[in-house]
Each structure stands twice: as structure tokens, then as C-alpha cells.
């Protein structure tokens, strides 16, 4: 019989560097999960992404055991990387204009597809392009479907 699920927790934590401090501590500790066990498993699973932001969906079961899935990085982080822009505390990012190509949008969309509620690559690309625009990043050229 499948284990009964108590709750889901979605965190974004630095790859390879999870420790029992917040948010892992309060988010999982309050549910009776062994945080140290989670940190060990998460760090091993994300050691190739050390220091990068790693979304992780954790399933906490009624018996206090857990399981987790590492998701793809946020679309905005991938756009930022593609546009080679860096955000800084003194300059809100929308003042910083960067550029990416539709080919890069496609690459990001393909990477994000497993985690997006999109059935086609085109709708995933529209979503990524929207994120880019909100960030002040222009998508150069004409959309492939235009």
C-alpha cells in the first residue's frame, strides 16, 4: 500500500549546500522530518549544481519519512544566465536591459518543459519570453510562430 502523504513542501535551496538552518529547519523540522537526513540526500543529489538555486519538491509522509524531486532552475535564472546579465542590489533589474534570442528561449523552454503546465514547446516559449520581458530582457528577432 502506498504511504499516506501528509504534505508537500516546495523549497529553493543552494545546491550541495543544504544545512539545517532556515528554511529547511522550520519547513521540515516542524513536520517531524529528520532534517539532517534530508540535507545529506539533497546535497548528494545536487552536488553538480553547487551554489546554484535548486527548486526541490519534498513529499512528507504521515510516518515522517520523505521523498523529494529536484526541479529545473527558475526560468528567470536561466534567462539571466542566457542574457549574461547580473542583478545587483543597487540596481533593480528592470533598468538593466539584456537581450536573448528566440533560439535561447527555445533552449530554456525545452529545459523547463518537465515542470511547466505546457503541452507544446510553443506555449512554453511564450511563457519564457514573458518572464524575460518582465525582467527587462528583450527577445531579439521574430517569434518562430509569427
Amino acid at each position: 500500500m502506498a504511504k499516506e502523504i501528509e504534505t508537500y513542501v516546495k523549497l529553493n535551496v543552494k545546491g550541495g549546500l543544504a544545512n539545517p538552518s532556515p528554511p529547511i529547519g522550520p519547513a521540515l523540522g516542524s513536520k517531524g522530518v529528520n532534517i539532517m537526513q534530508f540535507c545529506k540526500a539533497f546535497n548528494a543529489a545536487t552536488q553538480h549544481m553547487q551554489g546554484e538555486i535548486c527548486p526541490v519538491l519534498i513529499t512528507v509522509f504521515k510516518d515522517k519519512s520523505f521523498d523529494f524531486v529536484i526541479k529545473t532552475p527558475p526560468a528567470s535564472a536561466l534567462v539571466m544566465k542566457a542574457a549574461k546579465i547580473q542583478l545587483g542590489s543597487d540596481q533593480p533589474n528592470r533598468k538593466k536591459v539584456g537581450k536573448i534570442t528566440w533560439e535561447q528561449v527555445r533552449e530554456i523552454a525545452e529545459k523547463k518543459m518537465p515542470d511547466l503546465n505546457c503541452f507544446t514547446i510553443e506555449s512554453a516559449m511564450r511563457m519564457v519570453a514573458g518572464t524575460a520581458r518582465s525582467m527587462g530582457v528583450t527577445v531579439e528577432g521574430t517569434a518562430p510562430w509569427a
Binding site: 516546495k10 523549497l11 529553493n12 543552494k14 532556515p22 529547511i24 527548486p55 527558475p74 545587483g88
Partner: peptide, 21 residues
């Protein structure tokens, strides 16, 4: 949620450690 995603990246760049969605 799309803006939450962008803000998370921006705050992460500013040194914020981690996020619960």
C-alpha cells in the same frame, strides 16, 4: 507566480539564502 519566480532569482542574487514557495 511568474513575478514571484523573477523576484526569487533577483533576491538570490542579492544574497538571500533560500525560499519556501
Amino acid at each position: 507566480p511568474a513575478i514571484a519566480d523573477i523576484l526569487m532569482t533577483e533576491l538570490f542574487e542579492q544574497g538571500y539564502d533560500s525560499f519556501e514557495e
